[in-house]
């Protein structure tokens, strides 16, 4: 049986993680630019899942290094909240993760995303979800 190739979305702050993501080319991973971690809403994460993602990773600035002061902290809290929703929905909270990444650290971006991608491979498709 062919190995499962999950589709993954990374929601990246344009001031940090997205600049790192631009320097990478990871198959199966779509990097989406967000203006700041603070601009992230719960619905954006859920929408990514509804539009075909099997895993979502939110990446924002390093601790105490947000251009808008607390956007990264807020993004982390929102991820924690949506993890709860995913758990309630039976999708599994491990399909969503948060990581802080600096703009010049594409190596850390690649590591974090690849690690999550490997986990998604092990998890397989979302149970019951019709593959689009």
């Amino acid at each position: 049986m062919a190995e499962h190739s999950p589709s993954m979305v990374t929601l990246c702050c344009e001031n940090s993680a997205f600049l790192a993501a631009e320097k990478t080319n990871l198959p199966g991973v779509k990097a989406v630019k967000i203006p700041c971690g603070a601009q992230l809403e719960h619905v954006h994460i859920l929408r990514a899942f509804n539009q075909g993602a099997e895993g979502v990773m939110v990446l924002a600035c390093l601790k105490e290094n947000c251009k808008h002061s607390f956007g990264n902290d807020r993004a982390e809290k929102k991820v924690a909240y949506v993890k709860g929703l995913l758990k309630d929905m039976g999708v599994g909270e491990d399909r969503l993760a948060y990581a802080p990444v600096a703009a010049n650290n594409e190596i850390k971006y690649t590591q974090a995303v690849k690690e999550m991608y490997e986990k998604l491979k092990e998890m397989g498709p979302i149970e019951g979800k019709v593959k689009k």
């Binding site: 809403e41 509804n50 149970e127 019709v130």
Partner: peptide
């Protein structure tokens, strides 16, 4: 409005899972 959108997405996701 934000919470309405969030709830709608959650229901959509659940329905897709349960076919």
């Amino acid at each position: 409005d934000k919470e309405a959108q969030e709830t709608a997405e959650a229901i959509k996701m659940h329905r897709e899972q349960t076919n």
